[in-house]
Design a binder for these strands. Structure first.
Lengths: 145, 145
DNA sequence: CAGTATCCTGCTTGATACTG
DNA sequence: CAGTATCAAGCAGGATACTG
């Protein structure tokens, strides 16, 4: 595991660059949206349970059942699928301990930890502004309806 | 807007707190995952075109048609829907100029701009580590198949 | 120009049951 | 315990046509 990608040294140093690639630049470079890193990463994180799993594993490694209990309302199927997707992307490792009832431990890789660091600002934002969003929704719905 | 949530001063200073609310704590507090701010915000950003629109509007305000061209492969329907969702969440404003062919301008609100700032680290991360993810996928698929 | 309305497809997810 | 297999449902999203 872990190919020849030894470039990330400090995960916490994942600070946004002052001048990012704009949409116009992305399109001008001839890439489709599917090849766009932003879209790829966001879609990987999105719609599924990825973020919750990553946050749980950031606390400490978890076994399958632990994760299942930690995210109580995830189905066994979705947990399996999401874990395999994250493992496929190199964000976590899956370690099978050959005990009699098998136990499998999932843990973040360096790449996974750096992703969690990059997601943290969003987590903090969500915590702080969730109330504002709820209020905005209420106002919008009240006015619209 | 912005109820009693006065803890954030500088949007760029959206640095993760040393000790965030853990999943266990979230569950212990009796909230369902649906009430979880992280999940709510991420699901709003996820699966759709929200992030791309927010990034486009962060460059400058756009008219409907401009956005459509900027994100060339979005359907008119999805653009309309996504824009309305973002407006509903208080992330952008919709201004109708009563000209003869109507022109509508979309622009980020302060809340929207702060969200973009919170997403920026993720954008930077995606840019830097997209290659590593692609490699990991290749390796995984090669080994698995 | 900036939408709305309608139809239709496929992916995502859940529920349930079975296995090493 | 840690999955896999199968079935079925819901919703995101695309294509197309129409409107103020």
């Amino acid at each position: 595991m872990t190919p020849g990608h030894r470039k990330d040294t400090d995960p916490v140093a994942d600070i946004p660059p002052p001048r990012r690639r704009t949409l116009a630049e992305v399109k001008a470079s001839g890439m489709t949206i599917e090849d766009c890193p932003i879209r790829d990463v966001v879609s990987g994180l999105a719609g599924k349970w990825s973020v919750l799993i990553l946050l749980a594993l950031d606390e400490r490694p978890h076994r399958f059942g632990e994760l299942r209990r930690a995210i109580s309302d995830i189905s066994q199927r979705m947990l399996t699928i999401t874990l395999r997707d994250l493992q496929r992307d190199g964000l976590l490792t899956r370690t099978v301990h050959p005990t009699v009832p098998p136990s499998v431990e999932y843990a973040l890789t360096g790449l996974g930890r750096s992703l969690v660091q990059a997601v943290m600002p969003l987590v903090g934002w969500a915590d702080r502004h969730h109330g504002a969003i709820r209020d905005a929704r209420q106002g919008f719905d009240r006015a619209g309806a």
